[in-house]
Design a protein around this nucleic acid. Structure first.
Lengths: 218, 218
DNA sequence: TACAGTTTTGAACAACTGGTAGAAAGATAC
DNA sequence: GTATCTTTCTACCAGTTGTTCAAAACTGTA
């Protein structure tokens, strides 16, 4: 058998980048925030309560004073994302701006959430199968409602003749949501562009496209 | 309740959607395919070798004749995705088509891979932290090379004046890769559009944008 | 038939999992 | 000081995890 570097039967000590356990006062919020980072990096199933506790400089037992169980942490992460997302979008949709203006603002809003809540966002789109019971169903519904806002803005624009009918509203929605959600995979605050600048480019791209207008020949 | 022959009195409770263990001849390929589906649904860390074996109608021990260890399965999934992705894109990039034509074909190619290899694709963008050693680094490199093709096509178009310079080539790449990758989150073969149709709409959206040209007033 | 090679089994293992109980410690107010 | 309430720790449980391995079952073929 070949000695292989990668599977050196590790007693599984440090999984890479875990922080040196700063001792912060424990709270539900702190637990949820720390867990979000770990879930985002390693996945819900591969993150133990011991790891979460260690990162907070506490022990597993202490966590249970603040949370009900592991899934409870996950639920709080989902609620965090939803509360940050839903209301602003509803306001944009209900405003009296033009469809193009609305769509632009909606994209900027969504991209901002994706960029700011990065770990929670990653978890949001990854760990849904680990939610159980009525809460799981509720999330599905609220996610659909959220998407529906985008669809409606686009349909509104199509009805007004400012958006092309060649692109289905649902498909367009999935497309631009994917564009924004993907941010949480690569965006890092230190980079060459702010998330506002990136969002603006996305808007420009989705609305006017990348092709320059053909030169007018007369 | 339907009498299920294959799992008569299994002490193992059925975890929801697992298939009734069709007894297929075990092979590396079969293991990797089954694992990809399970990893995609529940995550690498939350999927046990028992589950993979059960779905194949075999026992955990038998897997080890075909694979080195759990991470080895993950490695094969990554290779599957890369071999399906890299070469066709390289050919498109090297072709003599126009930048707009190339970009269109590249998007269609990528969307097709995302739609067809759905479970493997989902795993590909999710489970990278569970790869270790040189292989993990190799994947990062090859992923970057892959993205670089898109960037180059866009830069080429910008240099030729057919793509706008208002959108950074890197950002545009991330945007449209996100759009395509998101497919694996929602696309289902039975839906109202084929993946070709969806890809075509994406191309239309990215190239010309959603806004209809303003009416010419004289 | 017998034999060799391939494949699968089933049990064993050490480490780790989410979760619990109660003692211990820390606060706070009197 | 005492009393009370809040928070954290230690130790433990029962179940599951990835992995190993000798024995068994299967395969083809001479």
């Amino acid at each position: 058998m070949v000695a292989d570097e990668s599977s050196a039967r590790s007693p599984q000590k440090n999984t890479g980048r875990s922080k040196p356990a700063r001792r912060v006062r424990l709270s539900q919020k702190a637990i949820v925030a720390a867990a979000a980072e770990l879930f985002a990096r390693n996945g819900f199933g591969a993150t133990s309560l011991d790891e979460i506790a260690e990162r907070l400089g506490a022990t597993k037992g202490a966590l249970y004073y603040h949370i009900k169980n592991k899934e409870d942490i996950l639920r709080h992460i989902y609620l965090t994302v939803l509360t940050a997302s839903e209301e602003p979008l509803a306001e944009i949709a209900a405003s009296s701006a033009s469809p193009a203006e609305k769509l632009g603002r909606a994209i900027i809003h969504h991209a901002t959430v994706a960029a700011n809540r990065s770990p929670a966002m990653t978890v949001f789109y990854r760990e849904h199968p680990h939610l159980t019971g009525p809460f799981a169903r509720e999330i599905v519904v609220r996610k659909k409602v959220y998407e529906r806002y985008f669809e409606q803005i686009i349909e509104e624009g199509q009805a007004a003749g400012v958006f092309t009918r060649e692109i289905d509203a649902k498909i367009a929605t999935f497309g631009l949501l994917g564009m924004c959600n993907w941010l949480s995979q690569w965006y890092q605050p230190g980079g060459p562009y702010t998330h506002q600048q990136i969002a603006a480019m996305f808007v420009r791209m989705v609305e006017q496209g990348m092709l320059t207008p053909p030169a007018i020949t007369e």
